[in-house]
Design a protein around this nucleic acid. Structure first.
Lengths: 352, 352
DNA sequence: CGACGAATGTAGAACGTTCTCCATATAACG
DNA sequence: CGTTATATGGAGAACGTTCTACATTCGTCG
């Protein structure tokens, strides 16, 4: 009879930590200890509990875990899911997370500050163990405020002075310089940059960094103190319109550096439609080295910043922070040029 | 003094439901009721509580919610994040979820059954309210087993007899038929399909459905009882190799239908490299009408199944199921042809 | 005026973990 | 043999919600 008192579990189907404890003939606390492999567990006990977990196919409830301690989940926030660069980052994250006991949950903010905020809050409310923010839009002060509640690593967010969170970046200034240097090396002097519309990037965004690098390289090359930077809106009908206008300008430059392959590829396409030959009339170089750029049909020269690597590094940084590091880290990767036909006819089409 | 007894909250910084209750001078249960807008709340009470929530900037803990009741989160499982069709689905999901109080969390399975299983389990363990599985790899019996634990809607998964979960699909058989009919209408008779390697698709996958549709349309057109279907592996080096082999076959067909734009675009690119003219030597039609296909440079005719719409429909179905529906629904959308230059030179290049 | 039902609010038991103390057993040591 | 350290296991209080019962207050109606 006294045994039946204990038989309260099993009420609904779910196998809980209590079921496991009963099956193994030990206490709930013991099971918890084994799972967290905490101190003070004999081999015999561990074996018995492990067995019970196995046979019952027990899975700890993440919800309950989150309420009290670790949830073993990390949140990844993407600004946009259509930019092919971002999936690469995810791939890198998953590679590192795979062998660990952590899992990634992804949120997509669609570049809306409102949604970004609420997703971050949700992830905190889920008691996730840490966050990787990819190209967040929020200002540093806000991120810092979140960072006291949860470990944060920002990718594609240039703020090397942030002390509350880590950053992982490709050196976007250097990337832009490399692009300009490549154009100069091909003999082009009349160079412009096509960047992203004003409202889309704050000072710490990758876009603005690339503009800085562009300006510096142009000045260093002796090409004026304020080189031209055009702004392309992000929304679709206006976007193509702005590019068409650029392509039909009588004073169109000889070469153009686009902030992203996304724009560069569309530009290439419109150029073809409008009879502007690439690279004979206009040389184009993009950024991200997306898989579309690599297509023989497109053949777009591009700056490669390995999203996969950035994802891997960010994940490792986050885990080390979750496990106790408090000093902030700011990691830089150096991007590289992938030359293709949009740069010059002899562009190395068989890259890498 | 007796008041101070109650002052236990506020221990660490977090604003909990108890803080709100104290601030509004009501019970915890009352606050909970207001938030769930349950029955039996006066306007006065509601106002007071709403005020307190506002001033304290209270956010309910999702972790705690999940432990007891609704978590107001739905999980989305993607087979692969690099296929541009899938982000479209997410966009559709987010559009419907935006105005609601639900939020989406995304997991990426990378087409690995193991990972897919563990992600689904995690989502269940988080007590998410429902799941949208996009092109899952798991067999129906397993999905059915999961579906008793959590409402499930599968997208891109053909099993109209499943009674435990809903399915939302474009009619992939019909889509393939439309493709073949378009090729026939252009006068091509020597037609093959390039499909996905054997191990990649089970019977209910979209790929196999497209094969069925292809066969039926070919037979109906009087083109043999077992038309040729080539299989292209998914992994990168072998993939291009198989396509090159196809392109250099002496008995290469006059027209080809690819299971996905992903393959069709690579094929187009390799064809150009190898000097095979499209559509003069080879007509190509793809599937998904991805944004890359629409580029002037690529100009790939394709079957359009609006991923956005599928996402929207799936989300609405899931919500209705969460809110009580038990009978399963199996929804079909009819895809459409987007004609472009890869089909015939006069291919309507200015689509949509 | 008594009785009953509707409307409103509250107490308190879950939910499934983690983790801090404690209790006990065993070993070590003088 | 007593005393003290050390290893091992367990009890039970959180964590922040939801939600079922129940208590109270009114109105209404016969």
């Amino acid at each position: 009879m006294s045994i039946e008192d204990k038989q309260k579990p099993q009420r609904n189907g779910r196998v809980t930590i209590r079921t496991v404890a009963a099956h193994a003939g030990v206490s709930v606390a013991a099971v918890s200890k084994v799972m967290r492999n905490a101190y003070g567990v004999s081999d015999a006990l561990r074996a018995r509990v492990t067995d019970a977990i196995e046979t019952l196919a027990y899975r700890p409830s993440r919800a309950a875990r989150g309420l009290r301690g670790r949830s073993f989940t990390i949140g990844v926030l993407l600004i946009d899911i259509r930019n092919p660069f971002l999936p690469e980052v995810i791939a890198g994250v998953n590679e590192v997370l795979g062998p660990s006991h952590y899992q990634a949950m992804i949120g997509v903010s669609d570049a809306r500050v409102q949604l970004e905020t609420s997703l971050i809050e949700s992830m905190i409310d889920y008691k996730m163990d840490g966050l990787i923010l990819v190209a967040p839009r929020l200002p540093s002060e806000i991120l810092a405020k979140f960072a006291v509640q949860i470990p944060i690593v920002a990718v594609g967010y240039h703020n090397a002075s942030a002390s509350a969170f880590d950053t992982v970046n490709a050196d976007d200034q250097r990337g832009a310089e490399i692009a300009v240097e490549a154009l100069l090396a091909c003999g082009y002097r009349d160079i412009e940059m096509l960047s992203l519309g004003e409202r889309q990037g704050h000072a710490v965004s990758v876009v603005r960094q690339r503009e800085i690098g562009f300006r510096r390289a142009m000045q260093r090359g002796g090409l004026g103190s304020s080189p031209a930077i055009g702004k392309i809106p992000i929304a679709s009908p206006k976007r193509e319109e702005a590019m068409r206008k650029f392509l039909s300008r009588k004073d169109r430059p000889r070469a153009v550096f686009c902030w992203s392959d996304l724009d560069a590829i569309t530009l290439l396409s419109l150029a073809m439609e409008m009879g502007v030959r690439v690279p004979e009339d206009l040389a184009v170089i993009g950024y991200d080295n997306s898989s579309t750029a690599a297509l023989g049909l497109v053949n777009l020269a591009s700056i490669d910043q390995s999203g996969r690597e950035l994802g891997q590094i960010a994940t490792r940084a986050l885990i080390s922070r979750i496990e106790g590091r408090t000093a902030s880290e700011h990691i830089f990767q150096i991007p590289s040029l992938v030359s293709r036909n949009s740069l010059t006819r002899s562009g190395n089409s068989t890259d890498r």
